[in-house]
Design a protein around this nucleic acid. Structure first.
Lengths: 146, 146
DNA sequence: AACTAACTTAGAATTATTCTAACTATTGAC
DNA sequence: GTCAATAGTTAGAATAATTCTAAGTTAGTT
């Protein structure tokens, strides 16, 4: 990331944090940088390990705190896989997730242009957000299983 | 449930278990009965508490074992909510789940007749199953918040 | 009947996450 | 600018959910 891009990201993050009542701190900046740096849906622990490289004194509790602040500020989302720890993802565009049942990797799947499919809800229900999870075989694992 | 219905359910369960390589045991029968008896998406612990009423010696490990066997045999499914324990559901028809962000209850939402919406996958991905989660306010909580 | 594998049990262990208490940094009132 | 109030960070303890372990039980097989 260039210096200019970096500054832009920081400004965006700072604005999002403060409008949700959070402060912009070096730890939050760094944790967000970790998410942006490798978009492979890391767990909190993986984020912790990566964050330690450039910030060795950071604690697990802070990583959880930062991830929570990022999610609540709307710059990251949390994706829950059937089994195991929650994973984090800085892609805020509407998208769904593909979980490979073999290698357990998570992939972003962009939704078609017409947006998310509409599911009719019974009277009285008010939907705020959707999550679509698709399970199956990813290209790599599908090939080797042929 | 009448005696005849009960027998039918047992036969169905027994067949499903054995085709997946599991035995039909009193504990599994009972845990399945608990799921059918109150379709409110209980957690493993809630199932444990309910199961104890008629089978006080059953252990938590057995409840987990039974739920796992039921899920693997295709007579129940596991639904994962953002936070907290997994929940179990004996409704095997294609349906999605609505999570109320306020009262945290889970509701089954039937899919439209045309089936689940189609999401185009990039080349190489093979989908096995979908899960659609909808978050928002349920009728009860939506009313009180007006 | 004897053997094997699956099942159940209690309790220990593990994993993921949250809480606690002490300390530090930032913000706003004066 | 100083000071109190609040938010954030830290290490480590605590909790919650789940899985594992070892020993005993049961069911199906030879």
């Amino acid at each position: 990331m260039s210096r200019v891009e970096h500054k832009k990201v920081d400004e965006h993050l700072s604005k999002r944090l403060s409008t949700s009542g959070f402060r912009f701190t070096p730890q939050r900046e760094h944790v967000y940088g970790v998410l942006l740096g490798q978009r492979d849906h890391p767990t909190a622990e993986e984020v912790f390990i990566r964050a330690k490289h450039r910030m060795p004194e950071i604690s697990m509790a802070t990583v959880y705190n930062c991830l929570d602040a990022l999610v609540r500020s709307g710059v990251a989302r949390q994706v829950t896989v059937d089994r195991g720890a929650k994973r984090f993802c800085p892609n805020m565009r509407e998208h769904s997730h593909f979980y490979c049942d073999t290698c357990e990797k998570v992939f972003d799947i962009e939704l078609p242009d017409e947006g998310p499919p509409v599911i009719p809800l019974p009277k009285g229900f008010q939907a705020a957000r959707f999550e679509i999870a698709i399970h199956g075989l990813c290209p790599g694992c599908g090939k080797s299983k042929k």
